[in-house]
C-alpha cells in the first residue's frame, strides 16, 4: 500500500512539473520535460522496488545497477571492446563499403537496378540474424563471425537506400553536367553521390541499431568468454541481473553514440539539404 501511494505521489509530482512546463511553453521545455519524465520513471522504479521488497533476481533497483556498473567497469569495457569495437564496427564498415560498391556498380545498368531494389528491400525484411549459427560454424566463435553477421545485416538497408539515392537526380541536373562536358565519373562524384548522400545516411543510421543487435545476438550462438551477448546470457543464467542491466546500459549508450555520430557526420556532409536547415 505504502509503495503504491509513494509511486502515485512521485508520478503526480513529475507529471505536474511537466504539465506546467508544457503550459508555460518555457524555452527549455524541449529538453527539460523528457529529462524530468526519465527521472520520474527511475525514481518510481527505485522507490517501488525498495518499498515493495521486489526481489533483485526479478528487478534490481537503479542504484544497485549504477553501483554494479561502476564496480565492473573493466569487465564492461572488455565486453564493449569485443562486441562493439571488434564485432559490430568491423562488420558495419565492411557491410557499408560492400553495399556502396555494389550500388555504384549496379547503377551503371538500369536493368540491374530494377532487379536489385525489390530483392534488396525483400532481403532487408528477413530475419537475417538467424544466419548467426551458420557464420559461427564457418568462422569460429570469435569476433569475425559476428562481424560477418553484422555485415550481412547492414548490407541490404544501405544498398537499397544508396541505389534509391543514386537515382535521385533530376534530368535538368544531369543535362547541366552534360553541357559542362562531364563524363560518367565526374558526374558520379560531383553530382550523383552528393545527391545520394541523404539517402545513404538514412540507410547508415538504420544500420547502426542493426549492427549492435547482430553483434549481441550472434554471441548467443557461441562466443569466447568475453562479449556483451555472452555476458548477458551467462549473467541471466546466474541471476546476476544487475550486471545484465549494466550491459544493457552500455548497449544503450553505445547505440545512442553510434547513431548520434552518424547523424553528426550527416549534418556536416549534407549541410545543403532542406532537412538540415534551421
Amino acid at each position: 500500500m505504502m509503495a503504491a501511494a509513494a509511486v502515485m505521489v512521485i508520478w503526480g509530482t513529475g507529471w505536474f512539473l511537466n504539465l506546467m512546463l508544457a503550459r508555460r511553453g518555457a524555452a527549455g521545455a524541449g529538453w527539460l520535460a523528457p529529462v524530468i519524465f526519465g527521472l520520474t520513471i527511475l525514481l518510481i522504479w527505485e522507490v517501488y522496488v525498495r518499498m515493495a521488497g521486489v526481489s533483485p533476481i526479478i528487478l534490481p533497483p537503479p542504484s544497485d545497477i549504477a553501483v554494479t556498473f561502476s564496480q565492473s567497469l573493466q569487465v564492461l569495457w572488455a565486453d564493449f571492446e569485443q562486441t562493439i569495437l571488434k564485432g559490430a564496427l568491423t562488420g558495419y564498415v565492411i557491410g557499408a563499403l560492400a553495399a556502396f560498391g555494389v550500388a555504384v556498380l549496379a547503377d551503371r545498368s538500369d536493368f540491374l537496378m530494377r532487379g536489385i531494389l525489390p530483392v534488396g528491400g525483400f532481403m532487408a525484411a528477413l530475419p537475417i540474424v538467424g544466419t548467426a549459427p551458420i557464420f559461427v560454424k564457418w568462422l569460429g566463435s570469435d569476433w569475425p563471425s559476428k562481424a560477418a553477421v553484422v555485415g550481412v545485416m547492414v548490407f541490404f538497408p544501405i544498398l537499397v537506400n544508396t541505389v534509391a539515392g543514386l537515382r535521385d537526380t533530376t534530368a535538368m541536373q544531369r543535362d547541366l553536367m552534360r553541357t559542362y562536358g562531364a563524363g560518367y565519373w565526374p558526374t558520379l562524384i560531383k553530382l550523383r553521390i552528393p545527391a545520394a548522400l541523404p539517402f545513404v545516411f538514412n540507410g547508415l543510421k538504420i544500420a547502426t541499431t542493426l549492427a549492435l543487435i547482430g553483434a549481441i545476438v550472434a554471441e548467443f550462438f557461441g562466443s569466447p568468454t568475453v562479449g556483451m551477448g555472452f555476458r548477458i546470457s551467462t549473467s541471466v543464467g546466474q541471476l546476476a541481473l544487475d550486471l545484465v542491466w549494466a550491459e544493457i546500459v552500455v548497449a544503450a549508450l553505445a547505440g545512442s553514440v553510434f547513431y548520434g555520430g552518424m547523424a553528426g557526420i550527416e549534418k556536416v556532409l549534407t549541410f545543403w539539404h532542406p532537412s538540415q536547415r534551421r
Binding site: T209, I216, V217, V244, A251, G255
Partner: peptide
Amino acid sequence: TIPILALAP
C-alpha cells in the same frame, strides 16, 4: 537507436 533485442534473455 537502442538494441532492445539485448533485453530478450
